[in-house]
Amino acid sequence: MSGDDVQRIQQDVTQLHDRWAGPLYVFALRIVGDREAAEEVVQDTLVKIWRSAERFDPQQGSFETWVFTIARNCATDRLRRRAVRPRVTAELEQAPTVPSQAEVDRVLESWVLGEALQSLSTEHREAIVEVHYRGRTVRETAVLLDVPEGTVKSRVYYGLRALRLHLEERGVVA
């Protein structure tokens, strides 16, 4: 294999990896339950996408659904391998279900949201975490962070605006 080939593979795979590895990992972790197996599922899935990309048929559904269908198959394969051997043939006949578009969207949106939160400044994120996730009032948050209440309000406001912008760019909110 020539050096050019290797370079091309690396480029293609890096693109696939950067776009899909994160959400696929979250998705796989939910099915297989442990990190090591989830990592293997992501590997299996990326290899398979790369090798069978030509088989993707847009008329059968979105690319996202295709990707997550492959991931679900890989995850199911991993689970089967864990099952007591020898395997029962009937088990193989039970084909894994195709994830719904809604389910796929949800995984992707959650992933993008997590990224968006990380893209905020520490001050903005901190204010949103205290107020939204920990359910604190503006007053409590102001005391906790040792800033005026007005600062808490403006941090939450500008933080949410930045978040919204980030999500808009990635098509999560209209």
Partner: peptide
């Protein structure tokens, strides 16, 4: 925002380990 847990919101989404790309 409710789709993430506090931990996910604070620490960021839990992605796969760094070496995964090379392995693939």
């Amino acid at each position: 925002l409710d789709r993430l847990t506090v931990e996910e919101a604070v620490a960021g989404p839990q992605g796969p380990p760094a070496g995964l790309l090379d392995d693939v």
